[in-house]
Structures are given as C-alpha cells and as structure tokens.
Simulated assay, not measured.
Amino acid sequence: MRQRYLALLSVFASLPAMALTFQTRLESIEWTVEGDKFECRLAQPITDFGSGEFVRKAGEQATFRLKAYNPMMGGGSATLLAAAAPWQPGRDDINLGTVRVGSGNVLFNSSQVQAGRLISGLMDGRSPVVRHSSGDGRVSEVRLLPVRFTKAFADYQGCVAKLLPQNFEQVKQSEIGFPGGGIELDSAAKAKLQVMLEYMKADPTVNHIELDGHSDNSGNRLTNRDLSRRRALAVMEFFKANGIQESQITVRFHGERYPVAPNTNNVNRAKNRRVAVRLDRGAPAEQVAPQATKAATSATS
C-alpha cells in the first residue's frame, strides 16, 4: 500500500507546471458521511479549495458536486475524469464528459450517470478529477483520492438504506384511481397514500393535504358529483385513520367537470375516476381557508 501512495505522489509531482492542482495531502485524506431520511452525502474535503461530494436524495440516484470556498474556477465547462491509478500501469483515464461550471459555492452538479461511474472508478482505485481550462490557456485541476474510500462507502450505503422512498418533489402530488367505478381504495391506491403518509410523518413542515375528487360521465351530474365527493372522503378517512387531523385536510369534489381524458371509452373513463392528492408546506391547520374547511365539513354530513 505504501508503494501505491509513493506512486501517487510521484505522479502528482510530475504534473505540468502550468496546471494548478488542488488536492489533499495523502496522509490527511478523509471521507465524511452525513445524512438523514431525506439526503445522504459522502464527501472528501479538499485542502485550500472546498470539497467533492456525492449527494443522494430520497427517491433518486447520486450526483457528484464540487463545492468551493471561493470562486477559484472561472465559468464555462470542465472535463470530468475517472483518472487511472498510478500503481496500475497501462490503464487510461476515463473521460466522463463535461460539466457546466458556475460561480457560486456549488460549482456544478454532475449527472447521475457520471456520478455512478465515478463511484465505480473509486472502488477500482481511480480518482475523480475535474479539469478546467481558462481562456488564456491556464489549466486547473481538482482531484479526489480513493484512499479509505471502501469503508466510507459502506457507511454511506448504510445511510442510503434509511432514505425515504421518494423526495418531496416526487411525493407532493399523486392521482388515486378508482378503476372499478366504486369508492373503495384498492391496494395500489393504499400503497401510494402510504408513501405520502410516511413522508408527512418524517417532515412536519408538510402539514396540509388537498383532495380533489373526480368522476367520469357515466351517470347524471348529481350522481357523479356525489361519487367524486365519496371518493375524496375515502382518501380523507385513510389519512385520518393514520393520525392526520381532519383540520389539515381540504376536500373538494367536482364530478365530471375536469376529465383528464375524453370520456369516449372504458379506459379513459377509468382514468377520470380519481382523487388528486396534493401535499403542501402550508399554514398551520388553524389557518386553513374557512371556505375549504367548510367544504370538508359539509361533505361528511
């Protein structure tokens, strides 16, 4: 292992003089793992620069981002590499394409594919490298090293295992279907609602639910309006049975007025039999609009 480290040092010492390289000294390399149910981060601090971080949000794959204390790179684009390890001669660097470099604290976020290949490279002893060329020909590089990565990655995987199934952008809206034409929640509907419920319990700032019931045009308008009301109430009862207060729920029902597909065949009509569910980071329950609260109350009478 010491020979590998010495080989690394010799390679870095042989870089062209015109290339400004940021990296942490070999003996000071560390990886940190932080996270919660919403996001996991695996980072290597970079001396005099900032850090390189793999970030995985709930419901998504990881991306790689480069953070800087100061805007040390100009704008434009940079090349992202999985650089070959010096103790494995005969292997070339893997060019993972370009990234757009900004001027803020976070210089860029890679694609999920690029991040996945960087992680695979680190497991294989490769170094993530960001290479940026300025207009006057100056080259700057930021390099992370694979030292101690395997243990840190195992800890990161432990964090990932605890992530919620979806993040807020993915979970905040859902369509609950009633394909059979009734008012009962089927297993697919309950599974969708359970994911939303799990997120609400993990994030107390998400404290309001809006329910909009809909029907197809199979019956008369009064019957359809009542069906849409009862479907919305079925969803409300699911949330109430799982600890959500009725004062946090707004219920509206529209009958056949707002189809998502023309009511011209059975498949389309099934799509229109639905309840649209929306989660909000809104006002406390006691501040919910009076008209909306009244609608929920009258619908249950």
Rank of each mutant, 00 (worst) to 15 (best):
F12D: 09
T32G: 15
I119K: 00
N207F: 09
V142D: 00
A292Y: 08
F54M: 04
A13C: 10
T223H: 11
L26T: 11
I176D: 01
L211Q: 00
D216R: 04
G102I: 10
R230M: 05
F149R: 01
V277Q: 02
R273F: 01
A17K: 14
D186N: 15
T150C: 05
G35R: 00
V55E: 08
E237R: 12
R143N: 03
K37D: 12
R100K: 12
A19F: 09
K172T: 09
T21G: 03
G116Q: 04
K151C: 08
E39P: 06
I183Y: 13
F178S: 02
E39N: 07
S215M: 07
V106A: 03
A152N: 05
A115S: 10
S134V: 09
K201D: 13
R56K: 14
T79W: 05
A62S: 15
D92I: 07
T223Q: 14
G219Y: 14
T79S: 14
P290Q: 10
L15H: 11
Y258E: 13
S140T: 12
L96G: 02
A241D: 07
R225Q: 09
R274V: 09
L8T: 09
F178A: 03
A276S: 11
G52T: 07
L15E: 13
H132E: 06
L26A: 11
S301T: 11
P128K: 03
C40H: 02
S103Q: 09
A188D: 13
L6G: 03
G180T: 06
Q173Y: 10
T293A: 14
S111D: 09
F253K: 00
W31H: 07
